[in-house]
Amino acid sequence: MNYPVLTIVVPCYNEEEVFQETSKQLTQVIKELIDEHLISKESNILFVDDGSRDRTWDLIEAETNQNIYVKGLKLARNVGHQNALLAGLATASKQADCVISIDADLQDDIRAIRTFVEKYWEGYDIVYGVRNKRDTDTFFKRTTAVAFYRLMNKMGINLIFNHADFRLMSKRALEELLKYKEVNLFLRGIVPLIGFPSTKVMYDRKERFAGESKYPLKKMLAFAFDGITSFSVAPIRFVTLLGFLSILLSILIGGYALIQEWRHHTVSGWTSLMLSIWLIGGLQLLGIGLIGEYIGKIFKEVKKRPRYAIETDLYTKEAKQSSPAPKTSEN
């Protein structure tokens, strides 16, 4: 019986503090799944170094030499979590029958990986890891995350609630994903667009094993804004609506001013004038800023620059070395 080749893709950026433990735990998961005849013996873990400035790549390279299940992919520079993840998925799709993506911080429950594979055997092409609750988050992060998901759904963007990038994808689902060529990458919004059979696996998220979070407030807000503007023109329409309402309000205020003029009740009002200027000026700047954001995204798309560059590939290189040499005919 042919068992599926599984590759676990792990994006890494300055993860030297947690790498050894992550490698140890994921290797144990791979061994157990092989022993249970759920995946092939050729299954592996692909660590993607996203231009780390610490010893992350040195650790990956060393682990590759002593652990048959660990492979490495080094990007030439830091390109961000989503592009690093895509680089790993694209590389793994060349050999794997299914791929699981997971962050290196061990917050996602690795015990759910077995359930992912079982769902794959049941015929699902995409399996989403969904958090049961957000108890480990701060009140602010929990509140803003819920607001973000609700806002995205209101705008017609189909996101899986409480799902990050912990998921399984089959080979054919990966092939469809790689057809999406946009530079402004938001995988959580793109994957549901594929439309293949999918399901959810619930799990409890844990505290980070070691090191610091790579998504502080500033990055989270930027990530959320990118997600909104990459999938919807609703913000521009909202500003258009505000402009329309502002025009109506101006007409009403203008009519009131004319009536007061005819009745000779006009009084010079510095406060009202300044408030009007600030309000209209603020709306104009907001509108210009949003339009600029969309134009900036168009600017990035039309240049069609590569999303990442691979400096060292210990994944396909290992596969080529282990493949049998072609037979030559004897004369």
Rank of each mutant, 00 (worst) to 15 (best):
Y3D: 06
V9Y: 05
P11E: 08
C12N: 06
Y13T: 06
N14P: 00
E15T: 08
Q20A: 14
S23N: 10
S23C: 15
K24H: 15
T27W: 02
V29H: 03
I30C: 03
L33H: 02
E36L: 15
E42A: 15
I45T: 07
I45S: 01
V48D: 08
D50H: 08
D50V: 09
R53T: 13
T56N: 03
T56S: 10
W57A: 06
L59S: 03
A62K: 11
Q66A: 11
I68H: 15
K74Q: 12
K74H: 12
K74R: 15
L75H: 07
R77A: 15
L86P: 00
A90Q: 12
T91V: 04
S93I: 00
K94H: 14
C98A: 12
S101A: 15
I102T: 09
L106C: 07
L106S: 05
Q107H: 06
F116S: 06
V117D: 04
E118V: 07
E122S: 03
V127Q: 04
Y128I: 07
R131C: 01
K133M: 00
D135Q: 14
F139N: 09
A147G: 09
A147S: 15
F148N: 02
Y149C: 05
R150N: 13
M152K: 08
K154H: 09
F161H: 03
H163V: 00
A164R: 08
D165M: 14
S170I: 05
S170Y: 02
K171A: 13
E175D: 09
L178I: 09
K179W: 04
Y180I: 13
Y180R: 11
L185G: 09
F186R: 03
R188E: 13
G189M: 10
V191W: 01
P192T: 08
L193Y: 04
G195N: 13
K200M: 00
R205Q: 09
G211K: 05
K214G: 01
K219F: 02
K219T: 03
M220G: 05
F223H: 05
A224T: 10
G227W: 04
G227D: 04
F231T: 01
I236D: 07
I236R: 07
R237S: 02
R237T: 10
F238V: 14
G243I: 06
G243S: 11
F244K: 14
S246C: 06
L249W: 03
I251R: 04
L252N: 08
A257N: 12
W262D: 12
H264Y: 07
V267P: 00
W270K: 11
T271G: 02
S272K: 01
M274R: 12
I277D: 03
I277S: 04
L279S: 13
L279N: 12
G282Y: 08
G282S: 14
L283S: 08
G287V: 05
G287Q: 04
I288C: 10
G289P: 01
L290G: 03
I291R: 10
G292V: 06
E293Y: 05
K300P: 02
V302H: 13
K303T: 10
P306G: 07
R307N: 15
Y308H: 03
A309S: 12
T312G: 00
K320S: 09
Q321P: 00
S323T: 13
P324K: 10
K327I: 11
